[in-house]
Amino acid sequence: MSPEPSSGGIKHGFSGAVYAKCGENRVKVVGRDGTTGIFDGIGQWIEGELYDVDPQMCVWVSAERIATSHRLSKQD
């Protein structure tokens, strides 16, 4: 299934599925059983055999990723 992830994935704590951004407003999800699906940034299904997804994880993964963490920031 294309496209390929454009950033490293995050494993969902409950389902074990791995979420990774794969382009603008697209998230690739690989379920624990190996099934995959492509979803948009709020979890709407685009393609693939995987249908169930956590929309909030899609929001997180698809967001413009900001490099600086408020837990480590040196801005002050």
């Binding site: 929001v59 997180w60 967001a63 413009e64 900001i66 408020h70």
Partner: peptide, 15 residues
């Protein structure tokens, strides 16, 4: 996330 000064907290607020 357009407010980059909020750092990663902006991503949290998005959710």
């Amino acid at each position: 996330t357009d407010a980059t000064g909020l750092e990663k907290l902006a991503m949290v607020a998005e959710q």
